[in-house]
Amino acid sequence: MDPLNLELPRTALVLVDLMPRIIALPTAPHSGEQVFERCVRLADEFRARGALVVWVRVERPGAQPEGSELAVEPHGQDVVVVKKTWGAFGSSTIDEELRKHDISTLVLAGIATNFGVESTGRGADDHGYDTVFVTDAMTGLEQHAHEFTVAYVFPKLGRVVTTEQLLTQL
């Protein structure tokens, strides 16, 4: 694998839709709990190295179902954005927040691979960010959808790595 060469002060870990009601959905190839644990581990590692952690959660118009809060309490320096659509770039302040912190690279993970994560990755590409996708720190509602997105979509948008490959290069 080629080195990622992440410039950590200009890199943000973006974690998509890690809310109890979404973590609890049946997912594949990884369970929502496995993904959540990997994402929390990544958040701790990124924070320890001075990189920004961004939590993205969805709020749809109308009543919010139970379990729509984040499954973790963000740390004081973390950024939380609320999106109204599948992807964070179309309906939240994420681009504003990232620019405010002089971020140029996004490391993406969360649930679901081919919905919120992919849509946010496409938006990141449209906005000129370099992207890294952590494939075992995300999961889909169906395994074939996850595998297709990881194999065919993400490589066209950025770099594709596992949690261990990423942590080795931090």
Rank of each mutant, 00 (worst) to 15 (best):
N5L: 08
L6S: 07
L6M: 08
E7K: 07
P9Y: 08
T11E: 03
A12E: 01
A12Y: 03
L15F: 05
V16A: 06
D17Q: 09
L18E: 01
I22F: 13
I23N: 07
I23H: 04
A24Q: 11
T27V: 12
T27K: 12
A28V: 05
P29V: 14
S31M: 12
S31I: 05
E33T: 09
Q34W: 10
R38N: 09
R38C: 09
V40S: 11
V40K: 11
R41M: 15
L42F: 03
L42M: 07
A43I: 03
A43D: 00
D44W: 04
E45K: 02
E45I: 02
R47M: 01
R47P: 03
A48I: 02
A48R: 03
A48P: 07
A48N: 02
R49F: 02
G50S: 01
A51N: 04
L52F: 02
V53A: 05
W55G: 02
W55F: 04
R57L: 14
E59I: 12
R60F: 09
R60V: 06
P61V: 08
G62Y: 02
A63W: 07
G67K: 06
S68T: 09
L70N: 00
L70R: 01
A71W: 02
A71P: 04
V72R: 08
H75M: 14
H75P: 09
H75L: 13
G76M: 03
G76R: 07
Q77I: 11
D78L: 09
D78C: 05
D78S: 08
D78G: 06
V79S: 12
V79Y: 10
V79L: 15
V80W: 08
V81A: 07
K83Y: 09
K83H: 02
K83F: 08
K84E: 12
K84Q: 15
W86K: 11
G87H: 03
F89R: 00
G90Y: 11
S91P: 01
S91C: 04
S92V: 15
T93G: 12
D95Q: 07
D95L: 13
E96D: 12
L98S: 11
L98Y: 03
R99G: 04
R99D: 01
R99S: 01
H101G: 03
H101R: 06
D102S: 10
I103E: 08
I103R: 10
S104G: 10
V107E: 04
A109N: 06
G110V: 00
I111E: 08
I111M: 10
I111T: 14
A112S: 13
N114Y: 13
E118N: 03
S119D: 10
T120P: 09
R122T: 04
R122P: 09
A124T: 00
T131V: 14
F133L: 15
D136T: 03
D136K: 14
D136R: 15
D136E: 05
A137D: 00
M138H: 02
T139V: 14
T139Q: 13
L141T: 04
L141I: 13
E142H: 14
H144K: 14
H144T: 10
H144F: 11
H144D: 06
A145C: 15
E147P: 13
V150G: 12
Y152L: 11
V153I: 12
F154Y: 12
F154A: 11
F154G: 13
P155D: 07
G158N: 06
V160F: 03
T162A: 10
T163F: 10
E164M: 06
L167S: 00
T168E: 03
L170K: 06
